[in-house]
Design a protein around this nucleic acid. Structure first.
Lengths: 117, 117
DNA sequence: CCAGATACCTAGATTGTCTAGGTATGGCCA
DNA sequence: TGGCCATACCTAGACAATCTAGGTATCTGG
């Protein structure tokens, strides 16, 4: 995916990772990179503000964790977050099926001329 | 899809529709609405500027069509546009597979706690 | 004759993501 | 022990994409 275009599904990705359990920002980034096979290598400047926003919206909550010596902010998903995740999953499904429908029904090299005039 | 978030695949959708053959803006909108089962009902203020941009980038070309009495600008895809469409299709595939990977591998209700700390 | 669908357009608001900076600590190796 | 790199966090502002909200004009059906 060359240069990143997260598009609008960043929240979906973050909430999905955190559905699994508590994680801190840096780990979320690494997780997304690994699971997606390097498709998503998100800049910190994208992820941290998004986590803050999701927390401000009540979809995540956080605590400071000093157990490892190094200071980390550990995020976990709230009930609202789980609900929002469900909704965003539905939206993603509708969206990707919509794209698929357009690609599938129109992009096959049918008769090339005078389609929709 | 509640309130629209085309996100970054607008070009892909427009080029896909026009791959089939010449069409004017209003028809492109209708086509997307129909094919996607109402998932995509794009505002004109989104589509017209996008068509202009794609033409300025050389991916589309247009001509005025007065054959129906009503004035219409008919767009068709160029060779560059076809090449760009191929590329955007690859990008979409990588992106949606990436999302799918994240949803699939992480969103199943596995062990819930202490995932990535 | 009028309403509503067709058909086009643009300026500016809004929003999301990224760039580009910054700080600080821990671990490793020379 | 000193230095470097990875880890870990943060923010301001740039930039780009999409949408809102207006506008014009023509054709069609009732």
């Amino acid at each position: 995916m060359a240069s990143n275009q997260l598009s609008g599904s960043l929240d979906l990705l973050l909430l999905s990772v955190l559905e699994r359990g508590e994680a801190h920002g840096y780990a979320v980034i690494a997780r997304l990179r690994d699971v997606s096979g390097d498709a998503f290598d998100l800049p910190e400047g994208t992820v941290y503000p998004a986590l803050h926003r999701l927390e401000a919206d009540g979809l995540l909550m956080s605590r400071w964790d000093s157990s490892t010596g190094r200071r980390r902010r550990a995020y976990s998903i709230t009930d609202s977050g789980l609900a929002a995740l469900g909704e965003k999953r539905r939206e993603w499904k509708a969206f990707s099926q919509g794209v698929q429908a357009v690609l599938g029904s129109l992009s096959r090299p049918g008769r090339p001329a005078q389609a929709a005039l």
